[in-house]
């Protein structure tokens, strides 16, 4: 039984690796509308929303890579959310 479960898990890993490599990276154009939607859907599931002005633009880029791992975001979703947050920053806190 254990060997079956292990085989399934290894197979799952190999399947994911092969298939995600074939799908490769989506078009690079960030979509702020999708970013706003994923931001609204995902962040509140675990914690209170952080405002775009809470962190600097640079800090947001780090924070989004952290959340990519933690929240299971795709690379495209991560870029979209970051683009939305940076676009939402006011001129005075755009740094």
């Amino acid at each position: 039984m254990k060997n079956i479960v292990k085989t399934i898990i290894i197979g799952l890993g190999v399947f994911i690796s092969i298939n995600t490599e074939m799908i490769a990276t989506e078009a690079d154009k960030a979509d702020t509308v999708n970013g706003a939607q994923v931001w609204a859907d995902t962040c509140m599931r675990c914690h209170n929303m952080r405002q775009p002005s809470d962190l600097s633009s640079r800090a947001w880029s780090f924070s989004m890579n952290h959340m990519r791992v933690r929240a299971g975001l795709t690379g495209k979703e991560t870029r979209d959310i970051l683009a939305f947050i940076l676009a939402s920053k006011t001129e005075s806190d755009r740094n």
């Binding site: 994911i16 690796s17 995600t20 490599e21 799908i23 490769a24 990276t25 989506e26 990519r68 791992v69 795709t74 690379g75 495209k76």
Partner: peptide
């Protein structure tokens, strides 16, 4: 450390 292979796969 996590290496992002592509949009859907990170190896940690």
């Amino acid at each position: 450390g996590t290496y992002f292979v592509n949009d859907y796969l990170g190896v940690q």
